[in-house]
């Protein structure tokens, strides 16, 4: 490093580092481009360039949000949604990962059970919501189940794909080192599939919020989805926007949290 700086001239160093410096500038600017959109929206709304009944100014939405935060109303709905997503997510992810590992490792299981999952997978989860409401009632159980179903398939396919992509040599290493079938499962297949499992977890988090929003539109008395729907019915457009922003932020934060976990547990897969 120090030798390089003495060999190269000032000018050469400047030219060498120019692309990296430009890159940094762009990255800095990229943080502000969404804010620019918000600013345009605010101004257009203030000057009546867009219909304020449909697109209230961001400042008006923020004011509504603040009132809902102070009254704790917002947290009630967020809590209800988060609980449903959290429980449903676990109910889908754990069996999804387990079955994905089993079918990934066992060819006979994959041959026999695989077609069942392939046949069920294309059914849109929202389309079976009425059926699930019929079976599990309008309470939280139906919300858990519909999320679990959506999450299950994403986890199942991503996990199985991860196991199937595991280089055969890792299996040979395990066998030669004296691993039992169960050890091959926990010590080789699971860690090898972990990058795919995290891809699945992130996809599943995104689709969980889509499903919960729809599920809460129909049969719920709480939750952000219910709140968006109720705002529509009373034509409280500002409140509706608050709901939309809140559920988006919830989804975004969930994925950020999963990415942090991924960086921690799958650091070895980088590069």
């Amino acid at each position: 490093m120090s030798t390089a700086t003495t060999i190269l001239t000032e000018d050469e160093l400047r030219r060498l580092k120019a692309p990296a410096r430009r890159e940094k500038l762009f990255r800095f600017a990229s943080y502000f481009s969404p804010l620019l959109l918000l600013l345009i929206w605010e101004l257009s709304s203030q000057f009546n360039l867009i219909d304020r009944r449909f697109f209230p100014a961001p400042s008006a939405i923020a004011e509504t949000a603040w009132r809902m935060i102070v009254s704790l109303e917002l947290f009630e709905h967020m809590g209800a949604t988060l609980r449903r997503v959290g429980i449903g997510y676990m109910m889908g992810a754990i069996p999804g990962i387990t079955l994905g590992l089993i079918l990934g490792l066992s060819q006979p299981a994959r041959r026999i059970l695989g077609p069942i999952f392939s046949a069920l997978y294309p059914v849109p989860k929202i389309a079976i919501l009425p059926l699930i409401l019929l079976i599990f009632g309008v309470g939280d159980a139906s919300k858990f189940v519909v999320i679990a179903i959506g999450v299950f398939f994403l986890m199942f396919y991503n996990t199985m794909g991860g196991v199937l992509q595991t280089p055969q040599i890792y299996m040979d290493v395990a066998k030669n080192a004296g691993a039992s079938r169960f050890q091959t499962f926990t010590r080789i297949a699971f860690p090898a599939a972990l990058p795919s499992i995290f891809t699945g977890l992130k996809l599943a988090a995104g689709s969980s919020y889509i499903i919960i929003a729809a599920a809460e539109f129909l049969g719920a008395r709480s939750g952000v989805g219910f709140f968006i729907w109720a705002s529509w019915q009373t034509f409280a457009v500002s409140r509706m926007f608050v709901g939309i922003v809140v559920i988006s932020v919830m989804g975004y934060l969930t994925i950020l949290a999963l990415e942090a976990l991924e960086r921690h547990f799958v650091a070895w897969a980088k590069n």
Binding site: I169, V173, P191, A192, L194, W268, A269
Partner: peptide, 11 residues
């Protein structure tokens, strides 16, 4: 056994 390719477990 010592294998041909990189058989070291990356995780």
């Amino acid at each position: 056994m010592v294998f041909q390719e990189a058989s070291v477990l990356p995780w």
